[in-house]
Simulated assay, not measured.
Amino acid sequence: MAERNNNEFEGKQKNIQILYEKFVILNRDLLNFGVSIEELKEICFKRRKTVHTVQGSQKNAQHSSFIVAVTVVCAVLISILLKIIFDSIIKNTLGTRCLLPNNYFIWEATRPETNCSMCEDVNSVLVFGNVTRDEFSNYAYSSRPMLVKGAALHWPAMKTFTYHFLKEIYQNVEGAYESIEEECQILTFKTEFRSLEDVFAMPESRVLLEEGEKPWYVGWSNCHPDVLAIMREHYTIPHFLPEDAEHAHMDYIFIGYQQGAVMHIDYISRLMWQAQLRGHKTWKLVPPPDCDHICSGISFRVDPGDIVLVDTRQWYHDTHIDAGEMSLTVSSEYG
């Protein structure tokens, strides 16, 4: 895939070079004909037509006609050049994993206007105890942040999911690491890691965040069917979600210390649930900027076994983990 992208990029570069050479030849001919630099700027960059009405002089009439013709040619060439450059940038950007997904400037520029009713009158997280599916049904598709206490305490994952358990899965399942690079996604946040293999290659002292070691926090999506099958033997879809809800074909793991994700919104297609399997995490939610005049931010702390439900497509959020604790969560989408 990388080789194909490189070949496409080289092809685009050759096309740009050809157009550049045509511009050089065109500019040289115009200058030889008597067109000034100022006129060239007006023709090609200010998109103005400089048509001189000259009487009596055949040379000036030809000059004027030539400028009009060149204006059209120049405009066409510029359009082609811009299209090639834009197409090259977009294709190569999309072909680079994690470049676009982590570029919040692009996301923010394309974010649709928010309906502020999603956060109006929300002053705290809505907390449930032993909630049933029927009791939860009125809130299931709401943008209201919710916390279901102890809903995952009975999952085997509360005991079995560890750094070393996840490492063993990826080392033993053929193609597991490759799936992260080719189909899934890894978020390395502020770490120096470049792949999941790097994450699982760190020394034990750093895994445990012993004194002198740098803190780390990463997340990744699991879309390899064999990996997903093994993992889902240790947890289930939260029991309170609607029976007819659609669920994603991939789940997410987030693991590490100290500050988790920085303030951001998620560009995902559905609502999100996240089960806290290890450690304590504090969520901070902030409404979209266009709702600042109506809504206010909230924060809440999550204990092991709790399940958080947040519309992370609309609520800006960051997370902080209790000092010295490793946080491990599993999450997915529904809708």
Rank of each mutant, 00 (worst) to 15 (best):
L166K: 04
D226E: 15
E197I: 01
F161W: 13
W273K: 01
H317F: 05
K14T: 14
D266V: 03
V330P: 08
K149F: 00
L166W: 02
F240E: 02
K281H: 03
I18V: 12
L196N: 09
T160K: 12
Y252W: 15
F128G: 02
E210A: 01
G256K: 06
E108M: 05
Q55A: 07
A323L: 02
V262E: 14
P156G: 06
G212L: 06
D303K: 08
K190S: 13
F86Y: 06
D134Q: 10
H224S: 09
I78T: 07
S205A: 15
H249I: 04
K190M: 08
V330G: 05
I294L: 11
S65Y: 04
W220G: 01
G305Y: 09
A275V: 06
T188Q: 12
A245V: 13
R313A: 10
S143I: 00
N60R: 12
Y163K: 03
N32C: 09
K167I: 05
R301V: 12
R206P: 00
V262H: 11
S205R: 14
P145T: 03
A2E: 15
L208M: 13
V127M: 01
G260R: 11
D290R: 00
V125Q: 00
D266I: 07
M118Q: 01
Y141C: 01
V286K: 07
H264M: 07
T114M: 00
V122T: 08
I186L: 11
L277R: 03
V24L: 09
P242K: 02
V35N: 02
F200D: 03
E183A: 05
E42M: 11
D290V: 08
V227E: 01
V54N: 09
N138E: 09
F240M: 08
C116D: 04
M1G: 14
S205V: 13
A275R: 08
Q259M: 13
M158S: 04
V73M: 07
V286R: 07
E325K: 04
L99F: 14
G297C: 08
Q314Y: 05
S79P: 00
C74L: 00
V68L: 12
I180L: 09
D303F: 04
Y170H: 10
A152T: 06
N172P: 00
Y177M: 10
F86D: 00
F9W: 13
E182S: 13
I268Y: 00
V24F: 04
R194Y: 11
I294R: 03
M1W: 13
S36T: 15
N27W: 07
R194H: 14
G129W: 02
Y252V: 11
I37D: 10
S205N: 13
R97V: 11
Q185L: 15
I255P: 05
E211V: 09
Y334R: 03
L99Q: 03
N222Q: 12
I85L: 14
S88E: 07
W220I: 10
Y316I: 00
E113N: 10
I255E: 05
P238H: 06
V35L: 11
